[in-house]
Design a protein around this nucleic acid. Structure first.
Lengths: 333, 333
DNA sequence: AGCAAGAATTGGAACGATCAAAGTCCGCCG
DNA sequence: CGGCGGACTTTGATCGTTCCAATTCTTGCT
């Protein structure tokens, strides 16, 4: 394993100076064509690649974006975040960025990790997920001056008009609206909604889509509630389904949808239209319709906010776009 | 956002030299107690943290481990790898290491990424997943001198006795053996196995556990095959289940298990014992038993191979342990 | 007190890249 | 022929840390 070549080695081979090699790499336009070609072939011959640490040290840029990985909580819906991370990694790679993942079990620990990453200059920016009302991370990041984008809007503020920070999110209401319209079109008018106990921004947003679609269709249906667990959801709707109180059910998540599906099978109505949210492998396997969040689009939006439409460095002040709201897609099964 | 403090700042405040501050951080034992305390409080006062890039440059160590993120393929079982990555991130953090994720769509692209990460000295080691017979990555990494561990054994060689490289894996045969014994104990003697088309090391290993357990119990049952897809599996076993050809079914994956479960419901035997493999959220939701891979243990084993039992730097020659084989745990539902 | 050996600490150099500013080359005009 | 300007290239300094070798301080012993 020979020592890897440096700019000096390339310069010697090409018969130019260090800086010219650097220019070929970073500012090719100012180098004369003939010189540039000579340098490029020297680079190719030696298999030269700039040493990341040296460049980071000098430029004070790490070309790295940090993102938290939740402790794996189990449950059906954890998958969505993982898909987002995958997509982000691909897009970041295309823009010459790296993704660094870090673990934290609590918000406090996450702040500690963020502080460390920032102080040690390991990341140029971070992406935070699962924002909630009164989230301490956003203010901290803002004070710290570390560029960031959140996947999840800053609930409680004027998100769209005057957001406190750049964010990307999925339009939950649009998703459940489409789901509800679909249910109305293939089943009866009594489309129920099974949501989470109110208070979570995401859950309320998804419920809104259902109620708006129902109002627009001048009909109504029952609204049920359960925490995000298959068994709980199943129990919660068993009685109502036995009484044939709904023609279809739109749910705030795939876990809930699976619970409803199982209860429907028990109640002898296995064909009851049920729509979930997240389009996880579990509902795919069961043939249940769901709302697909399009994590790829979310990832693309995230990087656009951080780096501009085509940039390859983190913009000091995230671009004019203050937010990106992705319209999800209903997957009918 | 003030400029962050450097060793020199700390040295000035503590009234010592640069090098002494460095010693306090890296070789505390050689610094006199009183001096060390003075330096430590200066560090705390200033909130000093070493600049990662500068340290990397000097020490030629990045304290970073790279790992590939597959393009999200859909399907039930992708989750296992994600859980592994999560666990690895946690354990690595505890040992003062970072995890860098990279994307690649093909093995060739993965080699290109690995070359880049190695040449630019961005990682000290990598973890590769999903090894297969004739995998080009292992030889390349070996030649390149980049330390690595694979999740998945080097199929085809003498894995255990004289492995060509350090690896960690889950003992698939032990998992299906436990599953089969459980099935025999709660159902009849005709325990079937639904596996993948033979040829994949992992699949053959899992099948072996079933056949060994059946032989030990002096019984036998049908062996079926399907590619890893819920619908395909369902179709593959529908007829056999209709004919009541098995008392229980052990499967090579959760996708297959779900397919079998659905076919069993269709056939009017919803209580047919089915055991999957991977313990994904999908089978949890459906109440199907499964073999849990224990990704946390796999992650711990991976780092142990790379860094030694308690080390916090990548060992130049991965430790005496040449492999770790994790015994999975049967989760009965 | 004098001295040697070990412990503790220090200043200079280096890691490999980019920035900033100072050259060099060349043709062209007065 | 000298000088000017623009295009291109080179030189020296720097980022923040750790390595290396040299220096100073302690301690114990004669």
């Amino acid at each position: 394993m020979a020592k890897s070549p440096t700019v000096d080695d390339v310069a010697r081979v090409a018969g130019v100076s260090r800086q010219t090699v650097s220019n070929v790499l970073n500012t090719p336009s100012i180098v004369k064509d003939s010189t540039r070609q000579r340098v490029e072939s020297a680079i190719a011959d030696l298999g030269y690649r700039p040493h990341a640490a040296a460049r980071m040290l000098r430029t004070r840029r790490s070309s790295t974006i940090g993102i938290h990985l939740d402790p794996y909580a189990g449950g059906v819906s954890g998958v969505v975040l993982d898909r987002f991370v995958h997509a982000l990694t691909e897009h970041a790679g295309d823009r010459g960025m790296r993704m660094l993942v870090y673990a934290a079990r609590t918000p406090e620990e996450e702040l500690a990790r963020l502080a460390e990453l920032a102080d040690r200059a390991e990341v140029d920016a971070v992406v935070i997920t699962g924002t909630f009302y009164g989230d301490p991370r956003t203010g901290w990041l803002h004070r710290r001056g570390l560029p960031f984008v959140s996947f999840g809007r800053p609930w409680g503020d004027d998100d769209v008009g005057q957001p406190s920070h750049p964010w990307v999110d999925v339009d939950g209401a649009a998703g459940t609206r489409a789901a509800t319209e679909h249910a109305l079109s293939i089943a009866g008018p009594r489309v129920a909604f099974l949501g989470w106990p109110s208070g979570s921004g995401t859950g309320d947003d998804r419920e809104r889509g259902w109620s708006e679609a129902m109002a627009a269709a001048r009909t109504s249906g029952p609204r049920w509630t359960a925490v995000d667990d298959v068994a709980v959801a199943r129990d919660a709707v068993t009685e109502a389904l036995g009484g044939r109180q709904a023609d279809a059910v739109v749910c705030a998540s795939d876990s809930l949808a699976i619970g409803v599906h199982l209860a429907a099978v028990d109640a002898g109505i296995p064909r009851l239209p049920v729509v979930g949210f997240d389009n996880t492998p579990a509902v795919e396997a069961l043939g249940i319709s769901s709302v697909e969040q399009l994590p790829e689009r979310v990832a693309a939006g995230t990087l656009e906010l951080l780096m501009g439409p085509t940039g390859n460095v983190v913009a000091p002040h995230p671009s004019g776009l203050a937010h990106v709201l992705v319209t999800p897609r209903l997957v009918v099964r």
